[in-house]
Design a protein around this nucleic acid. Structure first.
Lengths: 379, 379
DNA sequence: ACATTAAATTGTGTCGTTTTAGTTTTGGCA
DNA sequence: TGCCAAAACTAAAACGACACAATTTAATGT
């Protein structure tokens, strides 16, 4: 670990010195400093500002300012410093910087416990995390305990400055977490909208359009009694979906079957199945179903095929699709695609803008459109 | 923000002082200090060791040692300090601590780009993250770019001390990342084994048992020509699965159909489908399939039903199950369950032990067994 | 009463970075 | 040559936590 005998041949040693002299543009009397740098590098300790400073024959301050592109450092010096820094592999110490500036360069993602959308967490983390990384931020996953107060978890991030920004999912119309974050002035972006008076940055999927297009498609296919299986009622987009659905139903002049209170696409699949089977046996049986969840849709389809009444398996289902499962389930069904990766990228861009204090909440709201994936002939 | 006029009534002010005096057990001449504490708290700045120290009438060092349960602090003092700290809501500053101790209290999880196992990332993050949080660690998600050198990503974590420990998934027999981490002496746990001579902490699912049990079941059901769809060949458990599968085939005295080279359960579903359809039409058609991936299994089943030959849809499929999809797909198929959440918890416990320097690699290796979920009558 | 030791507490310095408030150097101009 | 401002750079002081060495206090033995 210590400089011991580090088996560096004289040749290497010499060329290293020469390299340093070349790079650093120093004269011979600086060799003492060079020795310092060399030893540090050979001992394989992380390069710090001090290392770079010694290597350049400059003060730590100057190096810091040069690397941060301050304009009171001569352009030539700036360039030289940056070259040396990158050459000796200097990477700023996150903690040192954070301690000084109060910015941790960490973004918290509140991870929901169960995502009914297959691969949701994975996709979001991947796209979001990749973009953030490219901009020097890191993504911290914060599992949201379902039983703990949702606000407390956010509060601990904010009060202890555990992150510079927060990404929230599963928003509610009067989301207390959002209200709190606005109050505290912490940069945050939500995946999903709220109904709060004060605008905030969000990325959302147009669930109203989804439901409307889905219902319309079923109407075109001749359905007369539609049912919607949406998200749990407390989430903002439950209403969005319902609005879109109702609009299509009203325009089409057909009936809708009210969704049971305890039926959403996050209901345990076993229960979904029971409820659908019961429903299909009743007088209120729908003749077409719009389903907002992938797995739930699979369960619904399974229920319909299981039903003793053979006509039930003819009831068409239109689902929201986030993975490629539906490309390969039998029978093929119509779906509308929601691109989670795209949402992740937008979330990242939004939070980065907020952190750079560019753009206001309004400009940082995006609504993503569904993409049709019709697989039946429409009759 | 500044103390301005903070509208604290005299009553409150007084009772606050009294509370402090009560808590801190200080005499009147300390009121100057109390004033300091009060102002800090009212101005709503984060409590630091200094705040706690002033509140207790002790030195910063003493407080630090008391909070860290050093035994050179009198138990009474220790208790008092801890009570005050928790009362005024002191939370240690992660950066400050990290800068001094070199421990970031961050654990990196390398997130694979595509998880063929539905909900894998979500489950792992949730269970792993929750356990880590309970022990004062935070989970950082590090998306693994598929195109970048896998080693570079790890290297940057290690060299820049971005995390105290690493969790890896998708291990290969001669995993360069693992080799590097061992060499560097960084605490890490893998989800999946390697074939390296030097032992390291891992959590793995017994994929050999999975494949063997699955194949046996199919043999019991009368199959004579089995095929295995495993993970990509480079992953360690590809071989595990193959071993288990072959063993059952040999014991059962039946044939196996070699899996095409470019067919794994991570193959794009469209391609899986094509290949299965082609295979079923050929002379080599298997009469039973073991599939290690959930989505892939769905695709396989879809292919079989799509096949022009009606007998193909009778070919039984046994899949690995990680979610509850298969409880609700039609027709019901036999599966073996892998509990990802359990793996996450074990991964967390392992890395925590390593960080505490308790337990060696050997004691920190766990193999999780599959759980049968037979849904057919077995004929 | 005084020396000796153990127990409890404190002061100082350090980690890596940035900011504030300088100080030195340069070049232009009288 | 001297003077002055602008340009280029530097020293010192933070930020919060903790390790270490030094110091004070209490308890014991003689």
């Amino acid at each position: 670990m210590h400089g011991t005998d580090c088996n560096v041949t004289n040749f290497l040693r010499q060329s290293f010195y020469l390299w340093l002299i070349d790079i650093c543009n120093v004269t011979v009397h600086d060799l003492a400093h060079l020795r310092f740098v060399v030893s540090e590098i050979i001992v394989n300790q992380r390069a710090t500002l001090k290392t770079v400073a010694e290597a350049c024959g400059l003060a730590v301050t100057t190096v810091s300012r040069a690397l941060n592109n301050h304009d009171d450092i001569a352009p030539g010096t700036r360039e030289r410093v940056q070259r040396v820094a990158s050459d000796i592999g200097y990477v700023p110490n996150r903690e040192g910087r954070a301690l000084r500036t109060g910015q941790s360069h960490l973004i918290s993602l509140v991870v929901p416990p169960h995502s009914s959308i297959s691969g949701y967490t994975s996709s979001i983390i991947f796209s979001l995390g990749a973009v953030l990384r490219d901009h020097g931020y890191e993504l911290c996953a914060l599992p949201a305990y379902p039983d703990e107060d949702e606000l407390n978890q956010i509060r601990s991030i904010v009060e202890n400055r555990r992150a510079d920004g927060v990404i929230l999912t599963r928003t509610e119309p009067q989301d207390v977490r959002v209200r709190y974050l606005i109050e505290q002035g912490i940069p945050f972006v939500t995946h999903g909208r709220t109904e709060l008076a004060s605008a905030h940055a969000y990325v959302d999927f147009d669930n109203q359009a989804f439901a409307e297009q889905a219902a319309k498609r079923l109407i075109d296919r001749g359905c007369k009694r539609l049912m919607l299986i949406g998200p749990p009622a407390e989430l903002t987009y439950a209403n969005h979906m319902y609005q879109g659905f109702q609009r299509a139903v009203t325009c089409g002049g057909i009936d809708s079957v009210p969704t049971p209170d305890d039926l959403s696409f996050e209901t345990p699949l076993a229960s979904i199945r029971e409820q659908i089977e019961a429903l299909m046996a009743s007088q209120d049986a729908p003749d077409g179903i719009v389903c907002g969840g992938e797995f739930a849709a699979l369960a619904v389809i399974a229920s319909l095929r299981d039903d003793s009444d053979p006509s039930a398996s003819k009831v068409p289902v239109i689902a929201k699709q986030t993975s490629s499962v539906f490309d390969h389930t039998y029978p093929p069904i119509d779906t509308l695609y929601e691109d989670i990766d795209a949402a992740g990228v937008l979330l990242a861009e939004s939070i980065l803008s907020l952190l750079r204090q560019q753009g206001d909440a309004k400009s940082l709201s995006r609504l993503l459109k569904p993409q049709t994936r019709w697989r039946t002939d429409g009759t």
